[in-house]
Computed example of a mutant assay.
Amino acid sequence: MLMASPIVLRNLMERYETLRAVLDEGHADGSDRTEGADPAVRQQLQDTIYTLCVSTGTREIGAALAAARGRIGAVTIDAFAADPARDASAA
């Protein structure tokens, strides 16, 4: 399976969170977030959810976010462990 770049995943997650926050504004009472929302924002959110799911090989946003976080974390840990400069400076 092709793996999305951690940078792409991070950008998609940030975009999702931003769009979700826009839709959440003024709906702290638990009412429908999409009611009365700008149709363009709703479409952008749906497109972002779709892209996150495809990029992570999942079918729902919760699983996509978890997979993206895992991929970003795994790459960060691997990069840290493989950096000889960090190993030398730690000695």
Rank of each mutant, 00 (worst) to 15 (best):
R71T: 12
T48P: 07
E60Q: 15
S89H: 10
D87H: 13
F80P: 00
C53Q: 12
L9R: 00
Y50R: 15
R33H: 05
R15S: 13
M13Q: 07
L2K: 09
A64V: 03
L12K: 10
D78A: 07
T34F: 09
A74T: 06
Q43N: 11
D78M: 03
E60L: 00
Q44G: 01
D83E: 13
M1W: 08
G73L: 02
T34I: 05
A74H: 11
D24I: 08
G26D: 12
M13N: 13
I72G: 05
A91G: 04
D83Q: 09
D47L: 05
D32E: 11
S89G: 13
T34P: 02
Q46N: 11
I77P: 00
R15L: 08
E35L: 02
L45W: 08
I61S: 07
M1L: 06
L19F: 11
R86I: 12
L19S: 04
A66N: 04
A63W: 09
G26Q: 02
A63G: 07
T58C: 02
G30K: 06
C53W: 02
R42V: 11
C53I: 01
L19E: 08
A68S: 06
R59V: 03
P84K: 04
D24A: 12
R10I: 02
G70A: 14
A37H: 06
A28C: 00
C53D: 12
V41W: 02
R86Y: 09
V8A: 13
D38S: 07
V22P: 03
A21V: 05
G57W: 05
L23Y: 06
E60T: 07
L9Y: 01
G70V: 06
D24Y: 09
A40S: 15
R33S: 05
G30N: 04
D29F: 06
G70N: 15
E14Y: 09
A67H: 01
D47I: 03
T34V: 14
N11G: 04
R59I: 09
G26P: 11
D87M: 03
A40G: 04
R71L: 14
R86K: 02
Q43L: 09
E25M: 09
R33N: 14
A81M: 10
R59Y: 14
I77T: 13
S31C: 13
S55V: 03
R10L: 07
F80K: 06
R86T: 15
G30W: 09
E35Y: 03
S5T: 10
D47G: 11
T51V: 14
D83M: 02
A66W: 00
C53A: 12
I61W: 04
G30H: 07
D38T: 03
V75R: 04
A90Y: 05
H27Y: 12
A74E: 08
L9I: 04
M3K: 06
N11I: 04
R15V: 11
R71Y: 02
D83I: 08
N11H: 15
V54D: 03
A91C: 12
R71C: 05
A82C: 15
I49E: 15
V54E: 09
